[in-house]
Simulated assay, not measured.
Amino acid sequence: MSKKNKIPIFPVLFRTPEINHLYESIEYFGTSIKNKTNSECAKNNIFTFRLVPEYFKLNLRDTSFKSKIIPQYNWGYSILLNDSDSIEGYMQRQFNSKKRNILTRYVKRLELCFNIKYNMFYGEMPPADYDFIMQSLYDMIIARFEERNETHKNLYEWQTLAEDTYEKILNKEASLFVIYNEDEPIEISLNYHYDKVLFSYISSFKIDYSKFGLGHVEIYKQIEWCANNGYKLFEMGVGGMDYKRRWSNNIYRYNYHLTYNGASLLTSYKARISGTKLKLKEYLKSKKINEILPLINNYLTPKRKNSSNIVASEIRPIDGLDLKGFKELSLLNNDSFLLKKHVYSFLYTTITHSNDIKIYKNNSENLFIVKSAAQYQKITLNV
């Protein structure tokens, strides 16, 4: 009796017993990776590998096995680097001067406004740092998706990720890329590694810093890391978000690989039925049938209301500013914490370092002022 095995390629990236058993080697962009394991797998099983990027070629070991490739209605986005590439070289090829200036401005502005550090944890990482970073990533995801009134698609597997990823980092099968402001993580990306492919699986950032385009900064810095370490691909995976399209020079389609024992008539027949079902599924997906239920659920889900209404005035010159009735606050004060997003937006717009501003509050009017040496902005908090 045949057994169906449905196995996603991402995030395991070909590191499964089934892949090693079935395929002698895997090829991509002129590179061939030999699989070491050559043990037997169940002859009557039907293996369905989904989300296999079309640029990967999987070479079977056993000539009695067959593999049907069924296109999926999913597109992937990645950055293909040259052997002697650099971040500057890639951006020169990918973007015109205007777009290059916009993207590099995010990096420069972030570093001008804060004391920024970058760290790639790969091969080694103190356990306490791991626990702290993973908890920080989880908190960022929750906060960001609550703001969007959505649920992150990977939260169902979070416990497994938290338990399994540390060992993968030590084995250089995974990494955590972190952007810090001082010692505060403000953007984190959980990555998986396969040969010279870096796959950004889950990333998020602190919503207070949204003005600074941290998603673009993360991509910029991870491409830089890939180029410096001889990587061929920076993978951003499935989903055609605008920022992925903007950065990608290698847009591809995903495939199912339906692999089975072609010497067995019964298994071949069942594989044919499985293939027909997968084709029907992808046809319905192409007609957007799969989007109907999420739209209904989104419509029926009660929308969260903002707990506060914050209004920021335009930024003005410091001349004539009267601080009578105001008291100075720390940015870490509970009241000013609600204003961080507006304070950081002020830093971005005025190109001011966070050490060079002051925050004041007028209790009677619930009015805040953030000021630099030359400019200020009034912020009203209506709870």
Rank of each mutant, 00 (worst) to 15 (best):
F145D: 00
E218W: 05
D83R: 11
S203R: 09
H152K: 01
T380K: 12
T48L: 06
E54Q: 09
N38E: 10
H342A: 04
N306L: 11
T301L: 05
R253Y: 06
E147P: 03
F114V: 06
G239M: 08
S364T: 07
L338D: 13
K277V: 11
N181V: 05
L110I: 03
Y28P: 04
R61E: 11
Y23W: 12
L332W: 11
Y231L: 04
K270D: 13
F65N: 01
F177M: 04
P8A: 05
M236K: 13
T31F: 06
I207R: 13
R246Q: 12
I79H: 03
K34N: 02
G76Y: 03
I179V: 11
Y269L: 07
T37F: 14
T352N: 07
Y209I: 03
K288N: 11
P71W: 01
I369Q: 01
L233Q: 04
A227T: 06
S364I: 11
N38R: 15
I357K: 00
V311L: 14
G262Q: 08
P294D: 00
R105I: 07
Y201G: 00
Y55L: 05
W158E: 05
F10I: 02
I79L: 03
K196P: 01
Y376D: 08
M134I: 14
D85P: 04
I357W: 02
L300A: 07
R304E: 04
P294I: 01
S307T: 14
S372C: 06
K4P: 07
N290G: 03
S308T: 12
I318Y: 15
